[in-house]
């Protein structure tokens, strides 16, 4: 696996062989990463947002390419993230966005399924104890394309969470599928998440669904954990980790996964 530090304002890269990369985005300025994944290439990409106030990530998946992207926000400052993806025929994208830090973020993600049988799965896990805003759009421009959203969030006392997730299937894109699952759990007495799961369908021959659950932690569950000697803080941590940690299942490299797991546990311990 190659590890690259991205601290140029604009960084362009072509990936034409099936290799894995870790990108550390770590300068206090706006960074733009442009990436092209060649035909038939299969790659895993781990992007650590370490200290950047704005990150724009534009990428293209060419025909029959497959990319698993895990973006981990560990920023020490508030940040804005722009993700723009273009996907050709038979390309396959698994994009995961995880953040457990205490800094505000605004994410704008646009995925265009331009070629037939292009497939995108977009996952997020968010621990919100400040402002976190996501706008995620996936637009189907060709037949038999498929998109899946899995958004999980835990909202703490000072958190404000906004998720606007839209799956759009254009006219003529028959055989396409768009499915969304959003789950938000709140420990806050005052705050609630604002979530818009939207489906804009302009074609009859499609499969589409959206499911959303939003609710406060059950008092009986907290009581049960406490009857075993677990404090309220520790119970919150346990439930939060249980709720959000599954995002790490999208990491294929065991050493990266183990490293991220420790960071997640430490972040949750600090914030909860």
């Amino acid at each position: 696996m190659q590890r690259l530090k991205i601290d140029d304002i604009i960084y362009n890269s072509e990936i034409n062989s099936s290799e894995d990369y870790i990108f550390d985005v770590s300068d206090e300025k706006a960074i733009k990463l442009n990436l092209n994944l060649g035909n038939n290439v299969n790659s895993n990409l781990y992007i650590n947002l370490l200290n950047t106030n704005s990150f724009e990530f534009n990428f293209k998946l060419e025909t029959n390419s497959k990319m698993n992207i895990f973006m981990f926000n560990q920023n020490e400052c508030d940040t804005k993230v722009f993700i723009n993806a273009n996907m050709d025929t038979y390309s396959d994208l698994n994009l995961s966005f995880a953040e457990f830090n205490d800094k505000a973020i605004e994410v704008n993600c646009n995925v265009l399924l331009n070629g037939e049988y292009a497939t995108a799965c977009i996952n997020s896990a968010t621990l919100a104890n400040c402002n976190k805003k996501y706008t995620i759009n996936c637009t189907h421009h060709d037949k038999n394309t498929s998109s899946t959203f899995n958004n999980y969030a835990v909202l703490l006392e000072s958190g404000d969470l906004y998720i606007d997730a839209t799956g759009k299937i254009n006219a003529g894109c028959s055989g396409s599928k768009s499915h969304q699952t959003t789950k938000a759990l709140t420990f806050s007495q005052q705050k609630q998440a604002v979530i818009f799961p939207q489906l804009l369908i302009d074609e009859n021959d499609v499969e589409a669904s959206h499911a959303m659950t939003l609710g406060r932690i059950d008092d009986e569950q907290m009581y049960y954990l406490q009857t075993r000697g677990i404090s309220e803080k520790m119970a919150t941590e346990l439930i939060t980790i249980g709720y959000l940690m599954p995002i790490l299942e999208n990491i294929h490299d065991s050493s990266v996964k183990e490293q991220y797991q420790k960071i997640v546990e430490s972040c949750v311990n600090n914030i909860c």
Binding site: Q221, L238, I239, I241, G242, P246
Partner: peptide, 11 residues
Amino acid sequence: QEISGVTNSDF
């Protein structure tokens, strides 16, 4: 109580 996401061993 049933608590999803929290394994018996972690708990």
